[in-house]
Amino acid sequence: MQAVNYSNFRQNLKSYLQTINEDSEPFIVTTKDAKNDVVVLSVDEYDSLVETAKITSNSYLMGKIKRGDQQFSQGTFTQHNLLGEDEDV
């Protein structure tokens, strides 16, 4: 993650926002007082983080993921076609 000071970020806002969106790389915007520093990230990255937090905090979903991971690593899984692949939905 790159860091840029507040003044430079402000002066080149358009360029930094474009880079953040194109590279999906957040930036730390620093200030003289470190407790006021912020992280700027794209909406897509933010949405991804929120979705990941929701999934990992859901014990039911995490149980299903862990069970599937175990089945895959043990070779005890069954492969299924996705709906619509070989059937009319």
Rank of each mutant, 00 (worst) to 15 (best):
S59I: 04
S42H: 01
S59Y: 05
F9W: 01
S57V: 00
T76V: 10
E85R: 05
T56H: 11
F77I: 01
I55T: 09
A34Y: 09
Q70P: 00
S15M: 13
D37S: 04
S59L: 06
T19L: 09
N5H: 09
I28H: 02
T78Y: 06
L41A: 07
G68S: 11
N12L: 03
S57W: 01
Q18S: 14
Q70R: 10
D44F: 04
N12V: 02
T30Y: 03
L17F: 10
V40C: 00
S24T: 03
E87V: 10
S59F: 00
D47M: 12
F77A: 05
D44C: 00
R10T: 12
V89T: 00
T56E: 13
F27R: 01
S59T: 10
L49Y: 10
T76A: 13
K14P: 04
S24K: 08
K14G: 11
E51A: 11
N21L: 10
K66P: 02
V89G: 00
D47P: 02
H80W: 13
S42D: 05
Y6S: 15
D86F: 11
N12H: 12
V4S: 02
A3W: 10
L83V: 13
E51C: 05
E22Q: 14
F77R: 03
S57Q: 09
V50A: 10
K14F: 05
Y6Q: 14
Q2C: 02
I55W: 07
D23C: 03
F77M: 09
K66A: 15
T19Q: 12
F72L: 15
Q11D: 13
L83S: 08
V38T: 09
Q70K: 12
S15V: 12
T78A: 10
N5L: 05
N8G: 00
V89E: 00
Q18C: 08
I65K: 05
N8W: 04
D44M: 11
I55C: 03
Q74G: 06
D33G: 00
E45R: 06
I55Y: 07
S59R: 06
E45L: 07
T19M: 11
Y6I: 13
A53D: 14
N12D: 09
G63T: 13
T31K: 08
T56W: 08
V43A: 05
D88L: 07
D37M: 02
S42M: 01
V39F: 05
M1P: 15
V39C: 13
T19W: 04
V4R: 01
G75D: 04
T31E: 08
I65W: 04
Y46I: 00
T19H: 12
D23W: 01
D88S: 06
Y6T: 12
Y6W: 13
M1V: 12
V89D: 02
N36K: 09
V38P: 02
E51Q: 09
N36W: 06
L61S: 07
S73M: 12
T78H: 12
K32T: 07
L49H: 10
R10K: 14
K35Y: 04
F72A: 08
S15N: 15
D23Y: 00
Y16R: 12
Q71T: 06
V89N: 06
F77G: 01
D44Y: 05
L61T: 03
Q79E: 09
I65C: 03
K32E: 09
D23V: 00
Y16E: 04
T30D: 03
Q74L: 11
M62C: 07
S48P: 08
T78I: 14
P26V: 01
M1T: 15
V89C: 00
H80R: 15
N21Y: 05
A53T: 15
S73L: 11
T56N: 13
I55M: 10
D23K: 08
